[in-house]
Nucleic acid binder design. Structure first.
Length: 695
DNA sequence: CTACCTCGAGCTCA
DNA sequence: CTCGAGGTAG
């Protein structure tokens, strides 16, 4: 059934009305419709859209109620990477930041030399979840989590349900431009922080409890959890909120001179910006803002963990540029970490896969910084000594910088523990082998090697891990059981396991057993690099393993390589080379490798680039960057191909880069390559290039 | 380091 | 229903 002009008109009216009501309610905090009226309109619109499917539209307010159920979260590549921010915790560090920024700007000949004071924009640093939303022609296209910075999970369906997220930017498209708010860009990535207010959190938990569900521990985690919901109607019922604070990639038709102007444009677009954002001047301005926010913090209706300062002028931002993972023109000034007092119940040591002994304090669980802390690493002997911590002590625990908790100091010592100071074990808690103490090195190691089941367990877990052999279903508990039941003693034994041997283990019936046996069998097809990494040679991580796989053609080659030969490899120094030689000098290691080979572990021979005489040596001098989305393969596949061919693949464009492969929607890397005059290849050119050299 | 979501599978009880 | 594994976020 096609909609008559009257119906079309009605639908448009309803949409405009609802959209405006949303904006008034969520962005301006000034409702224009009663809830009843809003619901009535929404219902009418839903009905009309259901009756006239041809009239459905991605930016209709009916899309905000959720309902779409995803099967999984796809991965979305950000057009421009989402970086993190550098942190400072003190006025001193902040002052150095300001000095650094100032001198860099004053040294830049393209900017005016004088500079009375630096202009910043300061804003609260919300404790939530960062998201990237892409609008194309003003229409919400997709939203993604931050992920690893370059790509994240597609949570579009969930983000759409957030009241304050417009499905359509306010303003006119280019060409239809009449008002002063400026045209809506062809595309723009906007970054915001999704969070749940205190009131929302209380409401949500009341709801959870009334439904017999577990309450959430803190607003941040409930916001994060809400966004990872496959059923978006659940997300829609969560009181999620958002403030926008930054921009990613955007079309050329979007220009701004300062951060302040950017945020003003955001507001014109109907994107919510924190009302606490303020322009401030110089170090004193920053510090004053910090003090004010610190005082306001208890009264705010949401959690913040600091404030963020950004250089206001875009030309100054450009001049400052970026370091590895963060802009030089912005910094987070964190509030002091939260601290709580609790008791040390015990001090255990953990044995790592290389035998490294790490002491861990078991604590009386304490709620600090939004989570319950019951374990905290003490790192090493020196740390225990420095703190002077003993079992039974009352200590201050701090959760700093968002993550790893630490013991700050001992505050009370019970009289009865006064006498028994902590004694670092002399032998391995697992295998009782003597520990090796080296005054030079901080780490203490268990000398048990292959007889130590704690080491064995970690080695097997490492072997099975995703980045190594990728054996699914071989987790902590299972490995523990296998070792305890003597079903395996080393990684080679895994391949001799039979279904019948597994049945009878806890939580292992036929299905789990065959699944595990199958995934072990499947793992035999791997790559040389993964295999080398899986062996767990000390100091040989993923990157080094990859280097070795390129350099050598077989395990035997690595085994017989001299120290000199190894040291000659990129990134391999004397320590790593020594460690590799030692590994292959142990007969038991060779035995395991032999048995693994016998079990049928194999990898494609093409993996390794040719030696220098092959035509592929053409690639040896290439330093290549791949950016943007490719259509015929993923970016990591492309990078993998290049590495196989012998090229060096890096993540960022520098003057050493020889070529840049540019896929769809490239970010700043393509521009940088252009600026540096580096050869740029399209996907087609890239494929031709590697084909032509294949010999 | 902790909290959260999702999935498959086993266990338990009706 | 509960558990373990696997993954994500900060």
């Amino acid at each position: 059934m096609t909609a008559s002009p009257e119906i079309q008109n009605r639908i448009q009216k309803l949409r405009d009305k609802l959209e405006h009501a949303n904006y008034r309610y969520h962005v301006l905090d000034d409702p224009a419709l009663t809830d009843i009226e809003f619901d009535r309109c929404l219902k009418e619109l839903s009905q009309l859209e259901a009756d006239y499917p041809g009239m459905q539209s991605p930016d209709s307010p009916t899309n905000k109620v959720g309902g779409a159920v995803a099967k999984e979260f796809a991965s979305i590549e950000h057009m421009q990477a989402m970086l993190s921010l550098d942190n400072v915790f003190s006025a001193d560090d902040l002052s150095s930041f300001v000095d650094r920024v100032r001198s860099r700007i004053e040294d830049d000949p393209s900017l005016e030399g004088k500079l009375a004071e630096l202009d910043f924009v300061a804003e609260p640093k919300l404790d939530g979840v960062a998201v990237n939303i892409l609008y194309r022609d003003g229409i919400f296209e997709c939203a993604a989590t931050r992920g690893d910075g370059s790509s994240g999970e597609d949570i579009s369906q969930n983000v759409k349900t957030i009241g304050a997220v417009p499905l359509k930017l306010k303003g006119k498209l280019k060409g239809k431009l009449k008002d002063k708010s400026g045209p809506i860009p062809e595309f723009i990535e906007v970054r915001g922080e999704v969070f749940i207010s205190h009131a929302g959190f209380a409401m949500l938990n009341a709801m959870q409890i009334s439904q017999g569900e577990k309450p959430f521990v803190n607003p941040r985690n409930s916001a994060a959890g809400s966004l990872r919901q496959l059923d978006s109607s659940i997300t829609a019922a969560r009181p999620l909120d958002i403030y926008f604070y930054g921009v990613g990639a955007h079309s050329d038709d979007f220009n701004f001179e300062s951060h302040e102007e950017l945020l003003n444009r955001f507001q014109d677009f109907g994107l919510r910006v924190s009302p606490l954002v303020k322009r401030v001047t110089g170090l004193s301005g920053l510090l004053k803002y910090y003090e004010i926010l610190m005082k306001q913090r208890p009264n705010l209706e949401y959690d913040i963990d600091g404030v963020v300062y950004k250089i206001n002028s875009l030309s100054q931002q450009r001049s400052l540029g970026y370091v590895a993972r963060a802009p030089r023109w912005a910094i987070a000034h964190k509030f002091p970490a939260q601290e709580e007092r609790t008791q040390v119940l015990d001090i255990d040591v953990q044995v790592g896969r290389t035998g490294a002994i790490t002491p861990v304090a078991r604590l009386e669980p304490v709620f600090v910084g939004g989570v319950t802390v019951s374990n905290v690493t003490l790192h090493n002997r020196d740390e225990i000594e420095r703190l002077g911590v003993r079992v039974g002590d009352q200590v201050i625990v701090r959760r700093a910088g968002d993550v790893i908790p630490q013991i700050v100091k001992v505050v009370v010592r019970e009289p009865e523990t006064e006498s028994k100071s902590y004694e670092f074990p002399k032998s391995c808690p697992d295998c009782d082998s003597p520990l090796h103490f080296d005054d030079e090195l901080v780490v203490v190691r268990c000398t048990g090697g292959l007889v130590c089941s704690a080491q064995q367990k970690e080695r097997i877990k490492h072997f099975a891990s995703r980045r190594a052999m990728d054996i699914e279903g071989l987790g902590d508990k299972v490995v523990e059981q296998l070792l305890a039941a003597n079903k395996v003693t080393d990684v080679a034994d895994l391949f001799d396991l039979k279904v019948e041997q597994l049945e009878g283990l806890e939580r292992f019936a036929e299905k789990s057993a065959t699944n595990l046996i199958n995934s072990i069998a499947d793992s035999r097809e791997t790559s040389f690099a993964r295999f080398l990494y899986a062996l767990g040679i000390m100091h040989v991580g993923e990157v080094t393993a990859r280097q070795l796989a390129v350099e050598f053609s077989s395990i035997t080659d690595v085994q017989i390589a001299s120290l000199e030969r190894l040291t000659a490899i990129d990134d391999v120094g004397p320590v790593v080379a020594q460690s590799i030689c030692e590994f292959f000098a142990v007969a038991a290691n060779i035995d395991v490798i032999t048995r693994l080979e016998k079990a049928g572990i194999h990898w494609p021979a093409v993996e390794r680039s040719a030696d220098n005489s092959s035509p592929n040596s053409d690639f040896m001098d290439e330093v290549v960057v791949v950016t943007g989305a490719l259509s015929s393969m993923t970016r990591s596949e492309a990078q993998h191909r290049l590495r196989e061919l012998g090229a060096k693949v890096t993540g960022s464009v520098s003057s050493n880069t020889t070529r840049v492969i540019v896929g769809d929607a490239p970010g700043s890397k393509a521009r940088k390559a252009e600026a540096l005059g580096i050869q740029i290849l399209s996907e087609t050119e890239f494929l031709e290039w590697i084909d032509s050299k294949k010999g």
